[in-house]
Design a binder for these strands. Structure first.
Lengths: 178, 178
DNA sequence: TATTGTTATACTCTATAACTATA
DNA sequence: TATAGTTATAGAGTATAACAATA
């Protein structure tokens, strides 16, 4: 039985700018997602020796239902085009994608998923969603909807602060050590 | 304004084993934590050129209030002792920790945080908790407590399934593409 | 023999910068 | 000049395996 991550009694004195509940919610969610992603990786490992980005790129290509430019995949994965090149190299070497020239603009390369690649997606997606159900299915619909709404509200706030310079909070009030 | 990640209308037919809300809650929380960690990394970058593991190791040493064995840090960070060696190398090169021989067992090495290391912790912790407050402070206490309890319940379930062999879910019912 | 830590090595992921070839 | 992609290079992070020193 897992136990919540909690801050100590001295926390409000040490960090007056943050409520214990905000710090605890952040810590518990980071732990949860870390554990969840580890379980996902464990279940995926039996399917193919691909990185999370590799599986995700295949799922993107499968969902697009048409070949995509390398830069389109880079955008969705939030990585540089240079990083995509080596990722595509790996996927192509395993036979999961092919490169084809763009018909009208010869600078561009179209990435197309192969049948073997689609088979990987067909096997991976049920595993991913089975894990989601196994884990998050312990909550009821109302709780899940509250998670979704809460997560969205926090992400909105994060998007707002991400464009500002990082704030310089007040100093830590280091507890005296006896 | 961020928008919730939602699955499509065809989801229940395609993945009968998973409810849309479970899949959506998982996706939204992964996105949230990813965004949150990115914001944390952005704010930490102004303090010292250290990795997340580096900051965490310093915080562990600071919190322990006494020198720790290398293996103790490895345990808490969930990495091998070989990985800790190079992490400690980095921290020692920057003057944030020192290695000292264990007084009675000469196989062991005690890692001690320096004043410079403590200064880093003193500057990093307020930034971390300020970010937690900025982001999670948009929810009220009741919502935050629900997050903490829900995250703990899910982590318990994850701990339970982690020891079992990964399940092999039913096949995906691929939607017909026109 | 078992334990602690280090070294050697390798692999993945990602980034920046310079480059090619188009447009 | 600008764009799409590749190559070259580098660095972080982590792992496994072999090893040395010590218990």
């Amino acid at each position: 039985m897992a136990v919540p991550v909690r801050v100590g009694a001295g926390f409000p004195a040490e960090f007056p700018g943050c409520t214990p509940l905000a710090a605890e919610a952040a810590a518990n969610l980071v732990r949860l997602v870390s554990d969840y992603l580890a379980e996902l990786a464990r279940r995926r490992r039996n399917i193919a020796p691909l990185s999370a980005s590799g599986f995700e790129a295949l799922a993107i290509l499968d969902g697009a239902a048409e070949p995509l430019m390398a830069s389109a995949i880079a955008e969705r994965l939030l990585v540089t085009t240079a990083s995509i090149t080596s990722l595509i190299d790996t996927l192509a070497a395993r036979g999961y994608v092919t490169r084809a020239p763009h018909p009208s603009d010869r600078r561009k390369v179209l990435i197309e998923i192969t049948d073997a690649g689609r088979e990987i997606v067909d096997r991976v997606l049920p595993v991913v969603y089975r894990a989601a159900q196994d884990a998050f299915g312990v909550l009821d619909d109302e709780q899940l909807e509250a998670f979704i709404q809460g997560a969205t509200a926090i992400r909105s706030e994060l998007a707002a602060v991400a464009s500002k310079p990082p704030p310089t909070p007040g100093p830590r009030v280091r507890p005296r050590t006896p």
